[in-house]
Design a protein around this nucleic acid. Structure first.
Lengths: 252, 252
DNA sequence: TGTTGACATTAACGTTACGTAAAGGTGTAA
DNA sequence: TTACACCTTTACGTAACGTTAATGTCAACA
């Protein structure tokens, strides 16, 4: 079937101006021009417009869509499969948003309480929140609210790059710690390197460093289920091994 | 807790420029200005920004958000509940889109076939498609492809207003038909009015009107399960009653 | 104490994806 | 032939920021 500008627009649920604009920028050229100068679109154009709509739905700019569609490697079926994955991700994010709004309602009615950062969950990909939620409460109890407030502020000031550094450090810490665990000796060079990495890691979120607080924290890791779990899931016994290593590290 | 421009922006996952812009247009004013001229945001502002984010997620313009938030009747909890409903609707629509992309994949791989209008399901609220999907096939068989193609074109050219007229006519038809059904007489004035409404309704989608085709169609209503169901769901026996009324109408 | 570097400020122009209006040609139903 | 709803191009308008520039502030480090 063939379509004029407005017919195609109505089919796709967009304005005829948009269709003409897509022609103007070379994104979607009509199949042919009628004798009277009308744009006529055919089957291929319908399919291309569908592709455009999917990419647009996923927040892509028209210029980038253009590049993709006109690249020699473009494959319609593969693109559709990609769209499917993206849309499923989008639905997941929407579910997070819905849970956010539901918790916000509960908070507004005083049934639960909500942290400021929790209020924006689902709007963007957020990974930072782990910190305050998991470690915040314990730390507040053990080291007082003031230090935590400052640590809080530090998180806020962290740039994207610093954040990447931070997660890289986390990974290195776990890797080194597991390596050290295999030696079995918390006083070994590798274990002490792990303890130092743990100190560096702490310094990302702590306002000041003190050996006493460091030693106190790792003891807490062993005592508290949630902290223990984080380390032990990589290797059972890792939390205790870290405590032993840090104890030696802080006494030196 | 208090936040500077960038801290608030990072919290919400938007740019600091956006936060300043919201101040500029009066949408989100800081709680206070520091001695050095810095914008300082507090708890209320965090909550307001969350509201803004929800409305924005739902595609609302900043000006309208402004009006809503500053209206005297605004209630945060009610708004959140409204957001919840809207987000659930949005998820439904997303599910339609996902089913669309899945069917598009199947179509691209040749497993099924898809109509052009089906390719845009989920992108917008679409109700027109009912026609071609339900009546198209039968009509094509009985009256030939050419007439249907023209009818098809007519649908595409229908404006929003015409569409409303069309649906209003549908409703009036059903109402009148039920009323006539209660008289029991297909020759009654009400029944003949219903038959005439049915003719008008047909003329919306038919390229030309003929008594023969009209009579043929209503007979088809009775013979075909899906057509019959449409009328009978309002009132069992309605399809046959309509046929009888139209038979009398077309013979006059 | 001066310098660095990441923040903050205002001002102003740029960008994307169209909306909207103007001025005129086209197609068909009455 | 007269509506009327479509089509065309040209061109300026708009929303929601992005970006750049020029300058002030603050905490930390040498």
């Amino acid at each position: 079937m063939e379509y004029t500008v407005q017919q195609l627009a109505r089919l796709a649920g967009i304005s005829s101006r948009a269709v003409r604009y897509y022609d103007e920028i070379g994104l979607l050229k009509p199949a042919r021009i009628s004798s009277s100068g009308y744009r006529i679109y055919g089957q291929n154009e319908v399919d291309t417009l569908q592709q455009i709509m999917f990419y647009r739905e996923l927040g892509m700019g028209l210029e980038e869509i253009h590049k993709i569609l006109s690249s020699p490697g473009f494959n319609r079926t593969d693109a559709l499969k990609e769209h499917r994955i993206r849309l499923l991700e989008k639905r997941k994010q929407l579910d997070v948003l819905i849970s956010n709004v539901e918790r916000s309602i509960a908070a507004a009615e005083g049934r639960i309480s909500m942290k400021d950062n929790e209020k924006f969950e689902g709007f963007i990909r957020r990974a930072l929140e782990e910190n305050e939620r998991k470690y915040g409460k314990e730390a507040r109890e053990k080291y007082g609210a003031e230090a935590v407030e400052k640590s809080n502020q530090k998180w806020l000031n962290m740039t994207e790059e610093q954040y990447r550094e931070f997660t890289a450090l986390s990974e290195e810490l776990i890797k080194t710690l597991k390596e050290a665990y295999n030696t079995g000796d918390p006083a070994s060079e590798t274990a002490q390197k792990a303890a130092d990495l743990h100190r560096q890691w702490l310094c990302f979120t702590w306002p000041v460093y003190s050996k006493e607080a460091h030693a106190g924290l790792v003891q807490m890791y062993v005592d508290d289920e949630r902290f223990k779990e984080y380390y032990d899931k990589h290797q059972p016994g890792l939390a205790e091994f870290l405590r032993d290593a840090v104890m030696i590290y802080t006494e030196r």
